[in-house]
Design a protein around this nucleic acid. Structure first.
Lengths: 294, 294
DNA sequence: CGGGCTCTTGATGGCAGTCAACTCAGGTGG
DNA sequence: CCACCTGAGTTGACTGCCATCAAGAGCCCG
């Protein structure tokens, strides 16, 4: 047995099922949009009245409109989507779906981060997917998720019931093609991750991870272009460790090492400043520039 | 730096481009299936005239007809496919495509094994995909492969030029849907592999790998059902190591260990007999039965 | 101030990587 | 026929990276 600890399962599990009523503050602190479904799920003492007020953004004004599956929809189709879609909101640590259990919806991440996780019997866990805004969640043609799906931060999903969505795929070839394209991209990303998990050192993994976050932030238009880049880690050290196939101690040590050597600057524990993106990429072990000129 | 050696690159590279005509004996030695494909495959030193003669099996009689992308084609469509398809054959170690270079065809593996490989600058390599019969190769909508594609054994591909195939996808929604389904399966498989590379011990990796081969052999109808299962490893120890994120020495040691303990029986160096599939699965660390009651 | 968490840092040990020698089989050429 | 070569695979000795165990720091919040 190797990597991934057993001793902390209890603690981990505790995180994943937060006490009701305990997290209210965090809602307010970091939540921008609301949703009726979020209410139904999270049940943290929001009144029905409050819940009803949660607005859905019109598709035309949606931040991920041009990156998600729905990017393939014509303006005409948007109206149809508008009627079918519904929002769901999750708190950090909350389960969106359990491995093997029924999951009869699909959706896109509007904001926040979700993680797909696999766990071995003895408790070793590996994150096998990190869904950022515009990423697609769920599998048409299958009624259960093979993975645990967890909200890693405050999470807002734009959902569709699975059956109608499958129908949409059949009737709109362009949506189907878009989903295929996105799935192929996911596959490429997963294969890059295989290289990371199979061959990279702890230090390289951390650097690669940060580089991925920087690139995604750039794609979503949160980038500064040139000069130092600032990103906020949406994950705890433990979640990062699960993603990178390391332990949280090793993650912490390597982040500290990168900080000591000036590759990154930390502001608090979650905010990372990258003075020189190229330097970071060098540390990641990849062959140089993967976009974002820095 | 960690795992994956640099010292043997030269040797590795040599293997990947074998001398023409050199491999004849091994072809004969390791080929059991007497199918038309097996035959066509084992040819070495074919003249141009011979090459032209390579017979194409009619789609209706194709062994992978019901598992590959083309499974979604109606009987009517087969005729059209028949006209567009062409076979390509590769020897073990031969490159099918180089990372980053132009690749203007897609195809299905008819027989043999192909590997997708990623390599870091310093020579560490990781196999990120193993294509067995009926698996799809290539990416519609992109004109180069991001990975090296190598024949790991004698390999027969059923190919289509990329443009016409993309047209086929547009005109036949069922084929498109089939490709989406296959891609989603690939993604799931890649995610299982992430768990393996991120969290499993060397021993568990070997056992998992063997279990995968057993299941695939069963799917392709080469399985015995109950009783001891016999599989022939289509990969060298080095290729297995590249796939499992280990070194070839570790692969060798763990295979020996499993043999010593009776989990497997070796016949020569490439043939593996599995007396008790359930035992193997236990060693793989996965939560029990993933099909094939054994 | 005390109780949880998250995160950091230190000490130690184990698994797999590294280096190296050897076996074995097939193929080649004298 | 035998010496020799080459490439695949096995095994042993040693090393090093990262997991493990442990303690403490920093922070939020009640």
């Amino acid at each position: 047995m190797r990597r991934g600890r057993i001793g902390r399962i209890a603690r981990h599990a505790r995180v994943k099922q937060p006490q009701p009523g305990q997290l209210r503050f965090r809602f307010h602190a970091s939540n921008q949009t609301g949703s009726a479904y979020g209410h139904a799920l999270t049940q943290v003492k929001i009144s029905a009245a409050e819940a009803a007020l949660i607005q859905q953004v019109p598709c035309g004004a949606c931040l991920i409109r041009h990156r998600a599956v729905c990017a393939a929809c014509e303006a005409d189709d948007l109206h149809e989507l508008e009627l079918a879609k519904y929002y769901r909101r999750f708190e950090p640590g909350q389960m969106v779906a359990h491995a093997g259990e029924r999951m009869d919806f699909v959706g896109s991440v509007v904001s926040g981060v979700a993680g797909l996780t696999q766990t071995l019997e003895d408790g070793r866990t590996q994150m096998v997917g990190m869904l950022l805004p515009s990423d697609f969640l769920g599998r048409p043609g299958r009624d259960s998720s093979p993975y645990d799906v967890t909200a890693l931060s405050d999470l807002l999903l734009c959902c569709f019931r699975r059956r109608p969505f499958e129908e949409l795929l059949r009737s709109r070839p362009r949506v189907s093609a878009r989903l295929l394209e996105m799935t192929l991209d996911d596959l490429d990303a997963a294969r890059d991750w295989l290289l990371l998990l199979g061959r990279k050192s702890a230090r390289e993994r951390i650097a690669s991870f940060l580089a991925v976050l920087v690139r995604r932030a750039a794609m979503l238009g949160q980038a500064t272009g040139a000069g130092p880049i600032v990103i906020d880690l949406p994950l705890t050290r433990e979640a990062i460790a699960d993603y990178l196939g390391l332990t949280l101690e090793t993650v912490s040590r390597q982040i500290s090492a990168l900080r000591r050597e000036g590759v990154i600057v930390l502001e608090g524990t979650r905010r990372v400043i990258v003075p020189d993106f190229r330097r970071l990429v060098t540390e990641s072990g990849d062959d140089a520039d993967g976009g974002l000129p820095g």
